[in-house]
Amino acid sequence: MRKPDKHTIACILFAAGAAAVGLMTDDAYYLQVLIFIGINTLLALSLNLLMGYAGQISLGHAAFYGIGAYTTAVLSATYGFSPWLALPAAIVMAMAVAYIVGRPTLRLTGYYLGMGTLGFGMIVSIVFREWHSVTGGASGFVGIPPLEIAGFAFDTDRSYYFLVWAVVLFFFLLSRRIIDSRVGRALRAIHDGEHAASAMGIDTARMKLHIFILSATMASLAGFLYAHQVYFISPETFGFMASIKIVTMVVIGGMASIWGSLFGATLLTILPEWLHAFADYEMMVYGLILMLVMIFLPQGLTRGIIDLYESSRKKHDQ
C-alpha cells in the first residue's frame, strides 16, 4: 500500500473544511453563494483539464453547461422523468455533442480553435433561445423539480450544499488521478509541444477528443446541478459571456492547477455579489478588474501572488 500523497491529504482537509462550513453556515443567502461556488468550481475544473492541462482553448464551454441544464429540465419537468434518469441522459447528450463537435473543431489551433468553439457556443445558446416549444425561449424554463433520493429531497440549501461539494470533491480526486497518469502525461505533452507529442506515439487527435468529452461531461453535470438548485433556467446563463466567465475563472485561478479552479471560481462568484453594491457601476468595475488582473498578473492570481511574495522576500534577503 502506498502512503497517501499530498493531494489526498489536501482533499481530506478540504472535505473537513467544507463540511464544517456547511454545518456552521445558517444564512440561506451564504449557503446559496457557496452552492454556486461549488457549481462554478466544477465548471472551472472541467475547462482547466481541457485548457490548462491539454492546452486547448474553448470559448464555448457554457454550451455544455446549458446542455446539462436543459436536458434535465426538459426530461424531468416536461416529460416527468425522474431527475436520476435525466442525469445519464444529460451526460450522454453532452458526450455525443462533444464527440460530434470535437472531431472537426479540435483539429484547429490557437485563435482558430477559440473561434470554432465560440461559434459552437453561440449556436447552442441561440438554439436554447429560439426553440420555444422545447426550451421556453428567451423567457426561460420554469418548474424544474428538486432532486430526491429514496424519499429524501435535496430541497434545502444545506442538503444541496453537501451534494454539490461532494461532487466537487469527487472530481478533485478524479482529476488528480487522471493528470498523474499516462493519459495526463500525454495531455500535458500535447500542451508543451504537439509535434513532439505525436513523435512519442501519442494519438493527439484522440487524446484531445477524450479530454474534450470528459470536460463536456463535467460541465453538463454542473448544468444538471444548477438546474435542480434554481428550478428556473434561461438562455443567457449559458451564452457567450458565461463561456468567457468560465475561461476567466481558469485563467485567474491559474492554468493547470486544480486548486486554482476552486480559487478562480470562488473569486468570480463572489465578485459580482460584492459588486451589487456598486449598482449601475457594476459592469464597469467588473470589466476593469478583469483587464487589470490580466494586464498585471497574466499567470493568474494564485501564481501572481506567490511570485510577488517570493520576489519581495528575495529583496528582503539581499
Binding site: 482553448i57 468567457i244 476567466t248 457594476e282 459592469m283 464597469m284 476593469l288 483587464m291 497574466p298
Partner: peptide
C-alpha cells in the same frame, strides 16, 4: 500587457468590452 498570449489578450479585450458597455 506583460504576457501577450492569445488567451490573455482575449480576456483583456473581453474585459474592455464589458467595461465599455458598462
Amino acid at each position: 500587457v506583460r504576457r501577450p498570449e492569445p488567451i490573455v489578450l482575449i480576456i483583456i479585450t473581453v474585459g474592455a468590452s464589458i467595461f465599455l458597455r458598462g
